[in-house]
Design a protein around this nucleic acid. Structure first.
Lengths: 203, 203
DNA sequence: AAAAAATTCCCCCATCGGGGGGTAGGGGGG
DNA sequence: CCCCCCTACCCCCCGATGGGGGAATTTTTT
């Protein structure tokens, strides 16, 4: 069985290769440290499985996974990532991944993942599956285009008046938006709004 | 030559072990996935070198390195980290580390590091040494203990009055600290102060 | 011990922000 | 076709914030 590996950290690459070497019938025939090389190689030959890091230097694994699955639907993709966010995992699976393994996974998990995927099953590492099972995190309401625009200006230290001038609207409008955001996220003031916006990657 | 490895990601552990296995005379005799186990083992026996991840589940490598070097000065420590920040690298070296390797390092770098350290030299992976050479980034003034304490409360949405009550000081004191911070970082209001504090990891 | 920094407290005063309302046009989706 | 969301605008009020000072006490560093 042929496996390709896409991973930009040599130390991890070595680790995975070493694990495969000890398994009968698992062969990491090629490894790549970026998405471009992988796509070039796939053009010539397709393996059974691709183990793919999500954090690549030249592309993000989410898009890369989609590209690969669009062009070669028969190739299974296992995502490998330090990122333990439900939304990322979900997106990856929507894009056709067959498994998701966190980098803190135990050795056997990567082997189990390959085995599962070869049987057309999906596989999640323990911590990834915990994350998925976790009760839906209070999903924060999304910012509208305008709100985001204004919030960024607020975070840049501009006052309502300055923002209003820049956007050619009335101060009261900006104030409205600000108030809406405070209400939307149930925070008492701008300080906490900014904190929340940054820590939750809203801006 | 004996090497201990402290690293909580099995994939990386495997990678490093595999690299050492291919080198003559380099032997990773023990590996640990936390600091406590390492210290317990060191009590009994000390290796020549410890390769130590900075991001451990039960301790941060910076303190762990200091503890190890204080108790066993003859043991060399090589730091292993994804963290490419000058201040962290410096702090690690001050605490007695003999080398610093980023996790994106090439295979040979970890081997070279061990060799260098055995000759009582220090070693930095390419990217780590680039970071060190980089012209001193505009270093932001540090927050004092009290300032940090107050800034965190501000970011949690508390008003000056509430903070004053919690800390048993006058509102004017809190206001003073707030003003000092605004001046210190040259920002016009709290919103930008919070943004800066979070993006620059001051809190 | 002297110098520097941190922490605490105080004044005044203009502006900004947040709480409470309400109104209304336009666009997209059910 | 109708409703909801987004957008935009308006009012009042007052507490919180930021800008300008100054100053005493403790802690830390040199």
């Amino acid at each position: 069985m042929e496996i390709y590996l896409v991973e930009d950290h040599p130390l991890v690459t070595e680790g995975i290769k070493a694990i495969f070497d000890k398994e009968n019938g698992m062969n990491c025939t090629h490894s790549f440290d970026n998405g471009k090389d992988l796509l070039a190689k796939l053009h010539i030959h397709q393996p059974d499985v691709i183990v793919m890091d999500i954090n690549l230097p030249d592309a993000n694994g989410i898009d890369l996974c989609k590209t690969v699955k669009d062009q070669y639907p028969s190739v299974s993709v296992i995502a490998l990532s330090i990122n333990n966010e439900k939304s990322i995992i979900k997106k990856m699976m929507e894009n056709g991944a067959s498994g998701y393994i966190l980098k803190d996974a135990a050795k056997y998990e990567i082997v189990d993942a390959i085995k599962a995927v070869m049987q057309r099953k999906t596989y999640f590492s323990i911590s990834a599956s915990n994350t998925l099972k976790k009760p839906d995190e209070r999903k924060l309401p999304a910012l509208t285009r305008r709100e985001k625009e204004i919030l960024i200006k607020i975070s840049d230290g501009l006052t309502n008046q300055q923002i209003a001038d820049q956007l050619f609207v009335d101060v009261s409008t900006v104030s409205s938006h600000r108030k809406n955001m405070l209400a939307k996220y149930d925070v008492p003031n701008t300080a906490q709004l900014i904190k929340l916006a940054i820590t939750e990657r809203l801006i």
